[in-house]
Amino acid sequence: MAKYKVVITDHEYKSIENERRILEPLGVDLQDYQYRDAENILRVAKDADAIIVQYAKMPRELVEQLDRCRIIARYATGFDGIDLDACTDKGIYFCNVSDYCREEVSTHALALLLEMARRVGRYNSWTHSGRWYSMPGIQHSLRNQVIGVISFGRIARSFIDKVKPLCDNIWVNDKYVSEKDMLEYGVVPKSLEEIYENADYISVHCPLTEETRHMFSRETFRKMKNSAVLINVSRGPVVSEEDLCEALDEGQIGGAALDVLETEPPSPDHPLFRYDNVVITPHTAWYSEESQAVLQSTPAEDIARVLRGERPLNVVNKEIFDRLD
């Protein structure tokens, strides 16, 4: 009989052999499901010692009904949809995968920036349609453009490192980082208002919180240059898509490049698909074979630590340490 029960509520991977390799030697019965609704999750995980989620949400009313759970781990960096206070109150660690795709996401953001600046995809479509000269639109050298970066975390800094050889004007806003640290890194600290009003490109790397939800809304778009481009590789709900469509319709901004949307997958008739000046990729900024291996292994490794009586490494609700010590 298995010593522990670990439930995977949902995932999009072809195999969970990495997780089995890590957990089964500890006497774990690893149960693999595709449930995102609270009713089914509670049915299969009420007595679980640990839970791994990907897209499933863990609200307080669900967390409070877990009888034995000691850790919830997520196949992601973000923790939106997880009630961290409820986890702490229940004595449950919540762990994410804090640094598995820094290079991938920052490179993807750079690719989106370059696509919007150089229009390679549009030129390709233009020539494939039998045309050669005079594709509509204008382009500017990135060298003297202003690139605004929202956040100064690890992915944002990796993006900045990639952009520095291409652009002399990188402005950054992150209220949790000192201006001194930003200046020493070779970027210019600016207020959000200054970035909104003056940046030619704004690349968003902040987490989704109540404060950042719909950070880019009608009010924000009205402050931006009518040639400015928004790049979002963070979380979809940071941008109000309804307000973005309005801004595009009214020519308030120059375009957008998005790897994330408010609802995924979007419907085939999503209004953003009708714009030629919008690039959308299917939430793939994180992906490489190497990053996926880390993404799948890290939650299982933290669960293994907890089952062995050790502290997990990637704890988000750090207040739990005071409760458990």
Rank of each mutant, 00 (worst) to 15 (best):
A2C: 01
V6Q: 09
V7G: 01
V7Q: 02
E17M: 07
E17Y: 07
N18D: 13
E19T: 08
L23T: 10
E24W: 03
P25Q: 09
P25L: 12
G27N: 10
D29E: 09
L30M: 10
Q31H: 09
Q34W: 04
Y35M: 07
I41V: 15
L42Y: 13
R43P: 00
V44Q: 10
I52A: 03
I52T: 11
V53T: 15
Q54K: 13
Y55P: 01
A56H: 05
M58R: 05
P59M: 02
E61Q: 10
E61S: 06
L62E: 11
L62H: 04
V63W: 10
V63D: 05
V63A: 08
L66A: 02
R68H: 14
C69M: 03
R70A: 01
I72L: 09
A73E: 00
F79M: 03
D83N: 14
D83S: 12
D85F: 00
D85H: 10
C87T: 12
D89Y: 02
K90R: 15
N96L: 07
V97S: 09
C101R: 00
S106K: 00
A111K: 09
L113C: 01
M116G: 04
V120Y: 08
G121R: 03
R122L: 12
N124L: 08
T127I: 15
T127W: 13
S129D: 15
G130N: 07
R131N: 15
Y133P: 00
S134H: 14
Q139L: 15
L142S: 07
R143F: 11
V146H: 14
V146K: 15
S151N: 12
F152G: 13
G153D: 04
R157G: 06
F159E: 04
I160N: 00
I160S: 01
K162R: 15
D168W: 10
N169D: 13
V172E: 06
Y176T: 13
L183E: 15
V187I: 07
S191A: 10
E193G: 00
E193N: 10
E193Q: 15
E194F: 02
I195G: 03
I195F: 01
I195Y: 00
A199E: 07
C206Q: 04
L208K: 09
T209Y: 11
E210S: 03
E210F: 01
T212M: 08
M215C: 00
M215K: 12
F216D: 00
S217T: 07
S217L: 08
F221P: 12
M224F: 05
K225Q: 06
N226M: 02
V229F: 03
I231L: 15
V233N: 15
C245G: 05
L248D: 10
E250Q: 13
G251C: 01
G254R: 03
G255M: 03
T263P: 00
T263F: 04
E264M: 10
P271S: 08
P271I: 00
L272E: 03
F273T: 02
R274G: 09
V279Y: 04
I280F: 08
H283G: 04
E289M: 11
E290G: 03
E290S: 11
S291N: 05
S291K: 06
Q292S: 05
A293M: 10
S297Y: 06
T298G: 06
D302R: 08
D302M: 06
A304R: 04
V306A: 07
G309Y: 09
V315M: 07
V316I: 14
V316F: 02
N317E: 01
N317A: 08
D322R: 14
L324S: 06
